[in-house]
Design a protein around this nucleic acid. Structure first.
Lengths: 148, 148
DNA sequence: CCATCTAGTCAGATAGGCTGACGACCGTCA
DNA sequence: TGACGGTCGTCAGCCTATCTGACTAGATGG
């Protein structure tokens, strides 16, 4: 976050462009498919929901927002029919946030778009460079992602 | 934005972690140095200001926000003494947003932190892999950054 | 069976972002 | 040279995302 055009940009900023590009593509595709009542913030929370459902507290921690914010977003997602809350059988206090049928459709579409974008990038960079990029980013995640 | 832990994450999401890490480091360092009245959104706008100053409209376009939002953030930055607005000599309608002396200090600090983070990453990945990563990201920018 | 911890909720505040409408100024073309 | 469409920045009003702080209900360990 500090390089005016040209010159050597810092790696953090360089990472930003592809991320933003994917997010924008995803978002546009969802809107085009009729899922136009979902926001970026909601998507970022929804993306952390695991196969069997995930606790609110865990979602909040992984998305780096407070429980209140996560709760608020899950409320909206639930109202729109993308997720549902079920009691956690192993803990009476907790509830699991699960993907509802309508949400499954979104996930499926999102995966298709992601694959599409990746295919374009691979075409631009070449197979080998793309594989190296992925490997480098995965290793970098070890030191940059607090939840992993 | 759709992979629950494990498995192969999409490249867009993988790009997100390093970006967030740099931003967080930068932010913490600024706060520690006494620049605790600057917000992320302000920083994202300020980071686009070029050497001779940049028009509000350009800042807005590059940061992908509306002119109104950019204007609001520049107001705050100006009030805090980080930037100033001067008339654009070549266009009576426009004004240039320039970095003020206090802002220069921030830029200098930011560059130091960025260099520091990059050194850490290089230590983790190795010289060669880091160079490849940079090259791949730069090429990717050609197809993901609308303002290039 | 009490002390304490954890999951989630409620209330209120703020920042960041949008759309829409607008006045001032620019450039161009008849 | 003067009228017109486009651009630069601004004002007003609104919604969404996010935070801090205080609270309730269930869990857990002595």
């Amino acid at each position: 976050m500090t390089d005016p055009a040209g010159g050597r940009q810092n790696l953090g900023l360089l990472c930003f462009y592809p991320h933003r590009a994917v997010e924008a593509r995803l978002f546009a595709a969802l809107a085009a498919a009729g899922f136009d009542d979902i926001t970026l913030a909601q998507g970022r929370i929804a993306a952390r929901i695991g196969p069997g459902g995930t606790r609110l507290t865990d979602l909040a921690a992984q998305a780096l927002v407070t429980k209140q914010t996560a709760n608020h977003l899950v409320d909206q997602l639930e109202r729109a029919g993308y997720v549902r809350r079920v009691p956690d059988p192993t803990d009476g206090r907790a509830r699991l946030v699960q993907i509802a049928p309508r949400g499954e459709q979104v996930v499926a579409l999102a995966r298709r778009v992601e694959a599409e974008v990746e295919a374009e990038w691979t075409a631009h960079l070449g197979e080998e460079a793309t594989a190296q990029l992925r490997a480098a980013l995965e290793r970098l995640r070890e030191v940059t992602d607090p939840y992993r």
